[in-house]
């Protein structure tokens, strides 16, 4: 067997080992590579940035634990943004069918709220999971509290301050420098999807289409999306049709949002490994093609 044939037939485990090292080394020795912003991510950031304080925002954590490493960084960044803007944060999940998004949302919103000094039931609430996919979205549009009589922790929703529009400025009395103060936004009661000023659907499957078809088209809620990189290309038609305002795609999108929020989190740090591994894969593809064509050429010459 010639050297080219050997290169072509290299043991797959050698490739696996290099992949592992290509990911691990930049984590041990960070490269701190710069992050550039894209219009798609700005589309979500600007919408949240322009909301008046106290506006209700819905965040659908529609992903499984399998996608947590990719999507948690952006969920955290969005939550940080919402709390910084003193928005009323409501989280929910309609996907996956085992409802694991409910626990993910609960953990993340609790942790970020603790950092921001926000109170459960007053500044934020996690509604948890409901079965029925589109039926839940329609249910939220028609009769919010009938669909979610209780939150994830079993508290009766009707009694929560956050939904009844009596939300105050939390513990930070000073308003943000350029935030548009609006008493109306805080006084707004949440009885339907229509009452939310904005929503971000963070998904690893097609739940965004359910939110668009029923949430946006039927009840007019403005939607921004955050999704796994695998799902991102599928959201561009909806972006161009103005059914969504922006796309935060994968770890790259998360790194951009972190940059906008002026911190370097798991998204930005992950981009170092991402860069190395992408270059490695391109080299692999190039090498694979090169060896293949050399062998093909040899065959033709012999033939």
């Amino acid at each position: 067997m010639g050297i080219i044939q050997k290169v072509l037939n290299v043991d797959r485990r050698v490739i696996y080992l290099i992949v592992f090292l290509a990911v691990a080394i930049p984590i041990i020795f960070p490269l701190n590579l710069p992050v550039t912003l894209t219009e798609e991510v700005m589309g979500v950031y600007n919408e949240i940035e322009n909301l008046p304080e106290g506006s209700p925002i819905l965040i659908a954590v529609d992903y499984e634990p399998s996608s947590s490493p990719e999507l948690n960084p952006m969920t955290r960044a969005i939550l940080k943004h919402c709390f910084k803007k003193n928005l009323r944060v409501v989280t929910t999940t309609i996907w996956p069918t085992d409802g694991s998004g409910g626990s993910i949302a609960d953990k993340l919103v609790e942790e970020e709220a603790r950092i921001a000094g926000k109170i459960r039931g007053k500044d934020f609430v996690n509604l948890g999971f409901k079965t029925g996919s589109y039926a839940v979205v329609i249910g939220m549009g028609e009769d919010f509290k009938k669909t979610f009589p209780k939150d994830f922790n079993g508290n009766v929703l009707d009694k929560l301050e956050i939904l009844n529009g009596t939300h105050s400025n939390g513990n930070s009395e000073s308003s943000l420098p350029n935030a548009a103060f609006s008493q109306d936004a805080r006084a707004k009661k949440i009885n339907s999807l229509k009452d939310f000023s904005y929503m971000v659907c963070i998904h690893d499957d097609s739940s965004v289409f359910t939110w668009i078809t029923y949430g946006y088209e039927r009840y007019g809620i403005k939607i921004g999306t955050g999704c796994t990189a695998v799902m991102a290309p599928g959201n561009y038609p909806s972006l161009q049709a103005k059914q969504i305002t922006g796309i935060i795609g994968g770890l790259k999108g998360a790194s951009e949002y972190e940059k906008l929020m002026n911190y370097r989190g798991e998204g930005a740090r992950g981009m170092d490994s991402q860069s190395v591994i992408h270059v490695f894969i391109i080299i692999l593809i190039f090498l694979g093609n090169l060896t293949y064509f050399i062998l093909e050429r040899k065959k033709t010459v012999r033939g």
Binding site: D98, T131, G132, V136, I138, G139, E142, T147
Partner: peptide, 16 residues
């Protein structure tokens, strides 16, 4: 519509 939706949600829980 409200009731049909509620029914679907409850049936879906049993489906799970």
């Amino acid at each position: 519509l409200k009731n049909v939706n509620l029914w679907i949600q409850i049936i879906a829980a049993f489906t799970l």
